[in-house]
Simulated assay, not measured.
Amino acid sequence: MLLTRIFGRAAQAVLLATTLGAAAQAQDFKLTSPAFAEGAKLSTDQVFKGFGCEGGNLSPALSWSGAPKGTKSFALTAYDPDAPTGSGWWHWNVVDLPADTTALKAGASGQPALPKGAVELRNDYGVTGFGGACPPPGEVHRYIFTIHALDVEKLDLPKDASNALAGFMIGAHQIGAAKITAVYNR
């Protein structure tokens, strides 16, 4: 290893300690929901109403803990990588969640239920806020809910920001993330 030749075993020990510390911190950051467990099927409460689906279109309750040190805000995303679009399907994107936020109640999508300052983007159904699951008949899709810890208080996105732009900015400022994945089929 080049570091060992240049700096010796001390550099190797520092690198190992840093890596192990980051891994331990990542394991501490967790996202959970009373609405579903990891890998479980979403209820009809979290299914879209429209596009041939008949659900409650209710955003699930979510809570998180163990955010990395230095977190200044959070972003929350819900994404279906299995949608037959070539780019997946964004079901929910909330940015600028204050750093002291640790949970969202069921049905939190929409103001004033979200914490002050939080901003919801337009989902891939074309409406602002949460859009529930609605895969094509006969297909099982994954719905990945991710809480992103960010190193900035605000992402400063334009009002009509796309989910791709938001994803880029989230990625540029992410210092940690926690995920929970549910499935749904009809």
Rank of each mutant, 00 (worst) to 15 (best):
F130S: 01
F130D: 02
F130A: 03
F130T: 02
G131Y: 08
A133V: 00
C134K: 00
P135K: 08
P135N: 08
P136T: 13
P136V: 13
P136E: 13
P137F: 11
E139W: 11
E139T: 14
V140H: 11
R142M: 00
Y143T: 06
Y143V: 02
I144S: 06
F145S: 01
I147Q: 05
I147M: 07
I147Y: 12
H148T: 06
A149H: 09
A149V: 00
L150Y: 12
D151Y: 12
E153N: 08
E153T: 14
E153I: 02
L155V: 04
D156I: 01
D156V: 00
L157T: 03
P158A: 04
K159C: 00
K159W: 11
K159M: 08
D160A: 03
D160F: 01
D160C: 00
A161K: 10
A161R: 07
S162H: 14
S162G: 07
S162P: 05
N163I: 06
N163H: 09
A164H: 15
A164Q: 15
A164D: 13
A164N: 14
L165D: 08
L165I: 05
A166Y: 13
A166R: 13
A166L: 04
G167Y: 13
G167M: 07
F168G: 02
I170H: 06
A172D: 11
A172G: 06
H173R: 10
H173M: 03
H173F: 07
Q174K: 14
